[in-house]
């Protein structure tokens, strides 16, 4: 309608999943996304995969950023991806993983539908740029 499409805003969820209490990185990202003009929904700590899926579906986020530093990415991330698929949300949600992910684990995550993996040392600008360029057009 005439009101224009300038009211679109990129919606992101920053999620901490599993038994992993390290959320400094997630906070920094949430804040940086906010300052980039995104709407950020922060999940809080110690969430189960199904909670993340529920929130991502209800909030209809464009981007789901999962922060994992516990090493359980190879079990938790696939559960989230399956959950998103169940609700028909997998193909148009940009899923990012941040944290300490060993090189050999990265390809399986990508095969599962993770769009990008950001390890230690990634600049915030790079992440924001990636989201801006790849956030799904709806």
């Amino acid at each position: 309608m005439s009101a224009g499409s300038d009211q679109q805003s990129i919606r992101c969820m920053v999620a901490k999943v599993g038994l992993d209490g390290h959320d400094r990185g997630a906070h920094v990202i949430a804040r940086a996304f906010r300052d980039a003009g995104f709407e950020v929904i922060y999940s809080g700590l110690h969430k189960g995969p199904e909670e993340i899926v529920q929130a991502a579906v209800q909030e209809d986020v464009d981007v789901l950023g999962i922060s994992i530093l516990s090493g359980a990415h190879d079990t938790l991330v696939p559960k989230i991806m399956d959950g998103l698929e169940e609700y028909g949300a997998k193909e148009d949600t940009l899923v990012l993983v941040g944290g300490v992910i060993p090189e050999e684990d990265r390809q399986p995550l990508r095969d599962d539908g993770v769009a990008a993996i950001f390890g230690p040392g990634t600049s915030i600008e790079e992440t924001i740029e990636f989201v801006r360029e790849n956030a799904p057009e709806r």
Partner: peptide, 28 residues
């Protein structure tokens, strides 16, 4: 934010009692 238009929507964090129950639909 009146400057960037960005926002951190944090109310979900405190809504843990009904997690896993899709019949509670929370939208920020």
């Amino acid at each position: 934010s009146p400057f960037t238009g960005g926002a951190v929507l944090g109310d979900r964090i405190r809504m843990a009692s009904t997690v896993g129950d899709m019949d509670v639909f929370v939208r920020s």
